[in-house]
């Protein structure tokens, strides 16, 4: 297998970090503009976000008494602060060979997406778990929390090697995310399995997962519209199977129709199960697609 690892600088350079921060601020501002989001809860906590005042009772912590109000009103009030719920972000990245060959852009996009989602999770004080998905699903890193762990995630992702086949049915069946916290699960894959119906049938396993699910299908534009003509010998990068074809324009048109039906089937399967689906073209701008992903009602983005 060729060296398909990506350097960490390439994966998470300063410019990308700046864009991600900007993106995070935009999301935060959007959250502030809205009165209440999915992330806030009715209970109070110890965050810096002021929520309300309440009369002091004996069981309250006296450190919460607002002495200024006592001076003015001669009554004891305590300040209540927002309590922010902690989520568990699961990021599952397809590491089969089809994600890196013949179009390396898919690998880059998948890893960047993994980093970005992890960064958002860490910045939002959530737990972040990383998984790789191939023949089977594996947890790449234990749950991490705190912004300091972003570098660890980047380094780990830059070392992930892509190869082997995809067994979507097994992966989705074996994946058991923790139920202790509300989970947000991101599956980043091209969903190319051994059969054309494998993906949308495998999605049904995801109904048992706790939390909200996001299926992100990555594909290169040439995977939908191959620039092939005439007699071609095709090699499947996962199975190494060879197939000699004589492709005509009519064949290519039929190929596109089949591909579109494949993606539509997955999308329909996801939407029918209250799961989010987004197709991700590697030739389009990362930020735009990422913003669209988060703006589709993800709890990660604060609703």
């Amino acid at each position: 297998m060729a060296d398909n690892k990506i350097k960490s600088e390439e994966l998470f350079d300063a410019e990308f970090l700046d864009r991600l921060r900007a993106l995070f601020l935009r999301l935060r501002k959007r959250k502030q503009l809205r009165k209440k989001g999915m992330q806030s809860s009715p209970s109070t906590g110890h965050t810096r976000e002021f929520k309300d005042f309440r009369h002091y009772t004996r069981d309250d912590d006296y450190r919460a008494i607002d002495w200024r109000l006592y001076a003015r009103l001669d009554k004891l009030f305590i300040r209540l602060y927002e309590e922010i719920q902690e989520y568990h972000i699961h990021v599952m990245i397809d590491t089969s060979a089809s994600m890196s060959e013949p179009f390396k852009d898919k690998q880059t996009a998948a890893l960047k997406l993994g980093v970005a989602l992890s960064y958002l999770g860490l910045v939002g004080h959530h737990r972040v778990s990383l998984y790789t998905m191939g023949e089977k699903v594996q947890q790449a890193l234990p749950p991490l929390k705190g912004q300091g762990n972003i570098q660890r995630i980047i380094e780990h992702l830059s070392k992930v090697s892509f190869g082997g086949v995809t067994n979507l049915d097994r992966c989705f069946h074996e994946f058991r995310p923790s139920r202790r916290r509300y989970g947000i699960i991101f599956v980043v894959s091209d969903f190319f399995g051994s059969g054309i119906n494998e993906a949308h049938e495998a999605v049904r396993h995801a109904t048992t997962w706790p939390g909200e699910m996001h299926f992100i299908q990555l594909y290169h534009p040439e995977e939908r519209s191959p620039k092939l003509d005439g007699e071609i010998e095709l090699v499947d990068v996962e199975t190494q199977e060879h197939r000699r074809l004589w492709l005509t324009k009519r064949d290519l048109k039929r190929y596109e129709e089949t591909f579109d039906k494949f993606t539509e089937d997955i999308e329909r399967s996801c939407l029918s199960r209250q799961m989010d689906y987004q197709s991700w073209r590697t030739d389009l701008a990362f930020e735009d697609q990422f913003l669209e992903l988060l703006s589709r009602g993800s709890a990660l983005a604060g609703g």
């Binding site: 089809s98 060959e101 013949p102 179009f103 091209d190 190319f192 399995g193 051994s194 059969g195 054309i196 290169h220 995977e223 191959p226 092939l228 071609i232 010998e233 095709l234 090699v235 499947d236 990068v237 996962e238 199975t239 199977e241 060879h242 197939r243 190929y255 089949t258 591909f259 494949f262």
Partner: peptide, 9 residues
């Protein structure tokens, strides 16, 4: 010879 992601299509 052309490598493709999948032959299913």
């Amino acid at each position: 010879t052309v490598a493709v992601s999948t032959l299913v299509f």
